[in-house]
Simulated assay, not measured.
Amino acid sequence: MNRLRALTRTPWFWGIVGIAVLLLVNTIKDPTYLAVGINPTTGQLSGNVLDILRVSAPIVMIALGMTFVIATSGIDLSVGSVMAVGGAVAMVTLSNLGQPDSVGAMLTAIGLAIALGALLGAVNGFLVSVVGLQPFITTLVMMLAGRGIARVITGGQNTNAENAPFRALANGQFLGLPLSFVLAIVIVIAVSVVMRRTALGLMIESIGINPRASRLAGIRPRPILITVYVLSAVLAATGGLFTVSEVMTVDVSGTGYQMELDAILAVVIGGTSLAGGKFSIVGSTVGALLIATLNKTVLFLGVSAAATPAFKAIVIVALVLLQSERVRALVLHRGNRPQTPAAPLAEPAQPKEVVA
């Protein structure tokens, strides 16, 4: 019982519960929802669950980067635009190279996209840590500038290309799982090892908890902040690569549109406080999977576009409430509270004897 109570206090536990509930709702509507079959055209495994895993890869990437930015008491509103920039660089590069089966062309496109993403992240980190601008304002400006950069790269036009190895990033499979999801999990594990096996994770948390005390302890916040924003932008560009590789087209207006909101929601659902401090990589990953499942559920249930934000808000608010200790105590332990016995009535005072 104590282990169960401790588990219910873990924020990402309720994210898993939310995923299970959404899958249950979809299964009630269609009992074959969780079925996995073989696509006769491609010969690969296909099914709704695999679709969810595939579309979750970009969300996992931007949520992972957003986790460390929020842990430093910052915010990165530019991840959606950086996704568009990364996708634009990749598509234009592949289109200009014109090598539909070249692995070298794919690596060149990926390298250029990640390099430009790192440059944009470095600009964010410089403005926040050196110039001293607020993260909200800095990344808001970069959010607007990023779309402009993507339009300049593509000439304002949606750009497509053909490259089989690059297309396999999203449409290929590894051991029956979408390759993009497998690569995203590998990146999550690699970043987790770096954060938890080195002092970087502790320094990020210390800056978020008390930047002045961390500075007095010998931690230099400027390099850490620049590193965090560069990492966020690199992961956002990687998410953009996963997005455009699915359809081999970049939409400078639609690619990554409002994805920063999904990233923030995934991080919050995972238990990382917006006030900064301790972060949860597992929680952010679970939150990203929940957002992907929720998006898929909205489409599957046929929720209208006008009602979609309200539907998502209801689910997310319910999960956030379940993370509250006060709400959990009210819902889960209300019947287990012992009844306090009524206090006995006080006996009437006896009159004192008067001594003559």
Rank of each mutant, 00 (worst) to 15 (best):
Thr340Asn: 09
Ile38Val: 14
Gly125Gln: 09
Met1Leu: 08
Gly74Pro: 05
Val123Tyr: 02
Ala164Pro: 00
Gln339Lys: 13
Gln157Tyr: 13
Ala342Trp: 06
Leu289Ala: 11
Ala118Asn: 07
Val298Met: 09
Ala313Lys: 02
Met106Gln: 08
Leu289Asn: 10
Leu120Met: 13
Ala313Trp: 03
Thr93Phe: 03
Pro351Arg: 08
Met203Glu: 15
Gln157Leu: 12
Gly302His: 07
Val247Ala: 02
Arg334Gly: 15
Leu4Gly: 07
Val317Pro: 03
Ala35Val: 12
Leu45Trp: 12
Gly132Ile: 06
Ile110Val: 15
Gly87Tyr: 05
Ala199Val: 14
Met142Tyr: 05
Gln99Trp: 10
Thr293Met: 11
Pro100Ala: 14
Leu133Phe: 14
Ile207Glu: 03
Pro40His: 06
Ala318Met: 10
Asp30Ile: 04
Val123Asp: 00
Gly287Pro: 03
Ser81Asn: 04
Pro344Val: 08
Gln99Leu: 15
Val331Arg: 03
Val252Asp: 04
Leu120Arg: 00
Ser56His: 06
Val49Thr: 10
Ala71His: 06
Ser102Lys: 11
Val298Ser: 12
Glu260Thr: 09
Val152Ala: 14
Ala170Val: 10
Leu22Asp: 01
Ile149Ser: 10
Thr308Gln: 15
Ala118Cys: 11
Val130Phe: 06
Ala115His: 02
Ala343Cys: 00
Gln350Thr: 14
Phe174Ala: 13
Ala266Thr: 05
Ala84Cys: 10
Leu169Lys: 05
Ser180Ile: 04
Val250Lys: 02
Val128Arg: 02
Ala343Asn: 04
Ala90Glu: 07
Arg326Pro: 00
Pro178Leu: 10
Ala318Tyr: 01
Ala113Met: 10
Asp51Arg: 08
Lys29Arg: 14
Met195Ile: 09
Lys312Gly: 07
Ile62Pro: 01
Ala213Gln: 11
Phe126Asn: 00
Leu45Pro: 01
Val60Pro: 01
Pro135Gly: 05
Ala305Phe: 12
Asn210Asp: 15
Ile316Gly: 08
Gly172Trp: 10
Ser324Ile: 09
Ile189Met: 10
Asp101Gln: 13
Ala88Ile: 13
Ile269Phe: 02
Ala35Ser: 14
Gly283Gln: 11
Val282Asn: 00
Asn96Lys: 13
Asn2Ile: 12
Ile269Val: 15
